[in-house]
Design a protein around this nucleic acid. Structure first.
Lengths: 236, 236
DNA sequence: CGTGTAATTGAATGCAGTCAAACGAAGTGG
DNA sequence: CCACTTCGTTTGACTGCATTCAATTACACG
């Protein structure tokens, strides 16, 4: 077995208030707590595979997880980098479809799992949680229309700037001594977020470094000048 | 005033069962019916503008409506072509955000409008409708991840084939004597669905015509060979 | 039945992808 | 601990798909 158990308690969970489970009554929280299992996943493990049937939902307690869809040449298109507090896998369960994406850990992650049956029961008895998830899904749809427009109309350079701005949210808590965001992703993953070839991405990183917008330490990328990123992103 | 009233009755509505309001009890239907207004919109009218606050929801009874987002050069990215039966504008209302897209009629349309307050009241008293819309939103999210992947990884030629396959659903009821789907869109709109320049699109239409995949009658495009489209689309 | 908008074609440019090769870093096993 | 291996990164050269600009033709719609 590639994962290990860990003891996590929803009542004590520090990131609960940032998650979909924030603001729930203590009765609901203890219901979740009673049905979940908590696991440590090593880097590179798959939580679920695109095209498989949802078995439950995953609540990220710690670590980053990439959600990606495979194109037909086997190239990953990364749809989202999920961080602590995010609830994964509920959408396909609600729409009663197969997972449209795969979820893979980018580092060691602590993840709680709530089985489908228990989760659906909670949902049906908790209007507040239901409304919260519905709202979240509608919000995501708005973001996706923006993503589609960016991919269709913006240059790779602009999309890379947008990606960095977005990753600053995701990696905001990972910062260096001088409080600058540090992004730890392979060049290939970064290219698969932007939607370009790895070589093209590397050339653009070079340009950004020359302009002191970013710096690098090994594979790690440090965001140096966000205002210039916003400028390059050329947002409408 | 550029629109005219029309008398439509939800109880008698022929497309109701294809819509989000399908399968509701007759009590709910009459509640909707009592709160809606029905209008005829001429071609080119805007139902709502991107960036404005949702005032209610729109149920399409007849006609096609394009939903698009503006890029910063003013270029439209068409996210969806809505047809009869579709319910528009509920997502931004649920997520309590401004409209992420604009909605414009592509031909004369009959559209029923339900004001925000009435719609929200109906939602809160009708768990079934609520669940249906939530499910629909989650389904749309899956489609959007596919769209993102296609835009990022597929060539314009492949995306045009995919667009035609998609439009066959939308324009399925618009067919000629020999039962072939006829698509009536400007070249610019078609280009803005595919995510390319109008000139590029026209050149590809030329290629498709040479290969007898489509034919044209004026601006109208007739789908001649769907199996070849599927082949070109190169779906995973 | 005109007239402006849409569609089409041509030519030139360039952004980004692909292929190939070299270099570097990190991990493995002897 | 070091040689070996593998994977990730980087750079160079080349190609080509798609965009842009410009000019002409067709046709949709009032």
């Amino acid at each position: 077995m590639l994962r290990n158990r860990i003891e996590l308690d929803c009542q004590e969970c520090s990131i609960r208030n940032d998650s979909a489970f924030g603001g729930l009554c203590s009765h609901s929280i203890s219901a979740i707590n009673g049905h979940k299992s908590s696991n440590i996943h090593r880097k590179g493990q798959i939580l679920f595979h695109e095209g498989t049937r949802p078995l439950g939902v995953y609540c990220v307690n710690k670590g980053k997880i990439k959600l990606y869809k495979l194109g037909n040449e086997g190239k990953e298109q990364i749809i989202q980098i999920a961080k602590e507090g995010e609830l994964l896998g509920y959408r396909a369960m609600i729409s009663e479809e197969l997972y449209p994406v795969s979820a893979e850990t980018l580092e060691e992650c602590h993840v709680c799992f709530v089985p489908k049956h228990d989760f659906l029961q909670m949902l049906s008895s908790n209007q507040e949680l239901y409304a919260k998830l519905f709202k979240h899904a509608c919000h995501e749809l708005g973001i996706m229309t923006q993503n589609v427009t960016n991919l269709a109309q913006k240059t790779v350079r602009e999309r890379l700037a947008i990606t960095f701005i977005m990753l600053r949210e995701t990696y905001g808590k990972d910062h260096d001594e001088s409080n600058k965001t540090v992004i730890n992703l392979t060049r290939e993953d970064l290219a698969n977020i932007v939607g370009t070839a790895t070589e093209t991405l590397i050339r653009l990183l070079h340009d950004f470094k020359e302009d002191n917008i970013i710096s690098t330490k090994g594979r790690k990328i440090i965001i140096e000048d966000e205002s210039e990123l916003i400028h390059i992103a050329n947002l409408s």
